[in-house]
């Protein structure tokens, strides 16, 4: 039994239609993927960002076209918050014509304009430092933004990157989606100390945000992101969040109570209850949109591979 009264509904300020549209586009995209898997229409694997959609949606407003975004295995939200191309992404995941990367990369290996994801945890951070150093030279004011999970702090490459970023003043924004779990292992069982103290050890500025309120996130992050641009100093922005879906599919070993609690504390309920009519209208629209995208992409022929 879930104790609804105990669940904390986070307060949220006003939200524009565009933001709600983006949040719900990602939500329906991810739900559709899980459904397609269940139906056997997809193979391989996927990691949905259910519950964490607000982070890239909030940040996308603070990023510029010339910024470079590095994403990870849980990257659909990172992508869709930046590029409104659910067709291309779904085609990539389904191996259909119009796929972003020819069906080769799939869900977790995407390189599109200034967005790159890869499936080996931690690997992208030193690469992001390299990209940031070039941006600093060629496009002053631009930054490299790298999304990583709390679990990825187990990898040594993260520390090598933080050290070099601070040492060489790389305009690097590390966005940590601290969802309290890595696959099945709670953060407490795999991280000693804190992310803040780890950043501090390298002299890297750290900021922690626990709200799901987009306006609040932007207010807090705006000046910090501007500082990364202006002073070429790296920043670790740690978002406290909760995964409300499985790690990949059907592999959630957490008690249902815990998952439900996370759902009740999330942005979906907060905005749904704060702006019921607008939310319902946009929700229905985005559900239909994604259903249409899924039907269209599924009807496309399999992508063929042009080999050089």
């Amino acid at each position: 039994m879930i104790d609804t009264a105990r669940a904390h509904r986070p307060p949220v300020a006003k939200i524009g239609d565009e933001d709600l549209e983006r949040l719900l586009l990602i939500r329906h995209f991810e739900l559709t993927l899980l459904k397609l898997f269940e139906q056997g229409a997809l193979n391989g694997t996927t990691h949905t960002c259910l519950g964490q959609e607000h982070i890239p949606v909030a940040l996308s407003a603070l990023l510029r076209e010339e910024d470079f975004v590095f994403s990870n295995h849980r990257g659909h939200g990172h992508f869709l918050a930046r590029y409104a191309d659910p067709h291309g992404l779904l085609a990539e995941i389904m191996g259909r014509e119009g796929a972003l990367c020819g069906g080769v990369g799939g869900s977790q290996h995407i390189y599109h304009e200034r967005f790159l994801s890869t499936g080996v945890q931690g690997e992208s951070l030193p690469v992001a430092v390299g990209v940031a150093l070039r941006l600093k030279r060629t496009t002053p004011g631009a930054l490299a933004c790298a999304y990583i999970g709390d679990g990825t702090f187990g990898e040594g490459a993260v520390y090598e990157a933080l050290n070099m970023a601070q040492l060489w003043r790389a305009p690097l924004l590390v966005v940590v989606e601290n969802n309290g779990i890595a696959q099945s292992t709670p953060t407490s069982a795999q991280m000693s100390g804190t992310i803040a103290a780890r950043a501090e050890a390298f002299g890297v500025r750290h900021h922690r945000i626990a709200t799901v309120d987009l306006a609040h996130i932007r207010d807090e992050m705006g000046p910090l992101v501007a500082a990364v641009r202006q002073t070429s100093a790296p920043l670790v922005a740690e978002f406290v969040t909760r995964r409300i879906g499985p790690h990949s599919k059907g592999d959630d070993a957490r008690p249902e109570q815990e998952r439900l609690q996370a759902e009740l504390n999330g942005w979906h309920r907060a905005y749904g209850e704060a702006f019921p009519e607008r939310f319902a209208r946009i929700d229905a629209r985005q559900r239909e949109l994604v259903a249409r995208v899924a039907a269209e992409v599924a009807a496309r022929p399999a992508v063929t591979r042009g080999r050089a």
Binding site: N43, G44, G95, G102, G103, V104, S107, H109, A302, R305
Partner: peptide, 8 residues
């Protein structure tokens, strides 16, 4: 590389 799409 080993592509993701099964047919590839």
């Amino acid at each position: 590389v080993v592509p993701t799409a099964l047919h590839l």
